[in-house]
């Protein structure tokens, strides 16, 4: 119990000293609130077509505060729903990649020797693959369902985490409490799950914060190309794509989703950087800034 507390305290004191990270965290909290609650306060639904308001400019008087798109749908509501999808992909796909990466890295690090060398060689090989292209292949071949997006993006983003976790595991494995557990006859799986993994939390937290923006970026990239989420659902990437086509006549269609997407990526990068400065023992630049 004490371990978790001190980790949270560490993270908190690191973040509270780093102004950029703190502002970013507050912005993200506000963003989550907004995408969850925003649509409730709008009189319009996500797929509701307002025939009298095709591609109308933002205005407070008619309730379309972000304007409407070229089909007369309320852009505020669509941006909020798009945000739900983008943030959800960020969260779920990151969880998938963390689960794969932590397990893989912990097993490789704990086993050591030939198994470790083989497993890490495999990671090296995978590193060289053009993964985004494989995600696109998967989307093309097996249909564009949201589940596949979660799994596909998560399944290709675990390599960094696996490497970091392996390094940490090698370090922890030499500690006395692991020896004690071994001597006490605890099974290997139980040692990994109960003794190694909880001690990896610090690095994992850092890499979660760094993976979320990457994952959101991949999803928007796919949706931008028309290979991600499909109508009537939408995401920030899909909205940016639609906006880019209409930007000459109605630039707000591009600007609102673009600002939301960029702000989110920006904030997560700052939070990740801040956490890494504080928690990652491997950070070499620490102390220089």
């Amino acid at each position: 119990m004490k371990k978790t507390n001190s980790l949270l305290n560490d993270a908190w004191s690191a973040l509270s000293k780093n102004k950029a990270a703190l502002i970013s965290a507050a912005t993200m909290a506000a963003m989550v609130f907004m995408v969850l609650l925003g649509p409730i306060f709008s009189p319009y639904a996500i797929d509701e077509i307002d025939w009298s308001m095709i591609a109308a400019a933002p205005s407070f008087s008619d309730g379309h505060i972000f304007g409407t798109d070229d089909l007369g749908r309320d852009l505020f509501v669509r941006t909020m729903y798009g945000g739900r999808i983008s943030l959800m992909v960020g969260l779920v796909a990151t969880l998938v990649s963390v689960m794969i990466g932590v397990t893989y890295g912990a097993v490789a690090g704990f086993m050591g020797g030939r198994i470790d060398a083989l497993m890490m060689r495999f990671v090296d090989v995978l590193y060289a693959m053009p993964f985004l292209f494989f995600v696109i292949l998967l989307m093309v071949f097996f249909g564009r369902s949201i589940f596949l997006i979660f799994i596909a993006i998560g399944a290709v983003n675990w390599l960094d985490i696996a490497r970091i976790v392996r390094g940490q595991t090698l370090n922890i494995k030499g500690k006395e409490f692991v020896d004690a557990a071994k001597t006490g006859g605890v099974s290997t799986i139980k040692i990994i799950m109960k003794h190694i993994v909880p001690n990896l939390l610090g690095v994992v937290v850092v890499y979660v914060a760094l993976t979320v923006p990457q994952v959101i970026l991949v999803e928007s990239f796919l949706s931008f190309l028309g290979l991600g989420v499909q109508e009537p659902m939408t995401s920030w990437g899909a909205l940016v794509n639609q906006g880019a086509r209409q930007m000459e006549s109605s630039p707000w269609m591009l600007l609102f989703p673009a600002v939301f997407l960029a702000t989110t990526l920006f904030c997560f990068n700052f939070i990740g950087d801040g956490l890494r400065d504080a928690l990652d023992p491997k950070d070499r630049t620490r102390g220089n800034d």
Partner: peptide, 18 residues
């Protein structure tokens, strides 16, 4: 630099065109 990293190509390109 952080802004440059955070704004993806496909957002930057339309903004530049705009």
């Amino acid at each position: 630099g952080m802004i440059g990293i955070s704004i993806p190509n496909f957002v930057m390109a339309p903004l530049l065109v705009l």
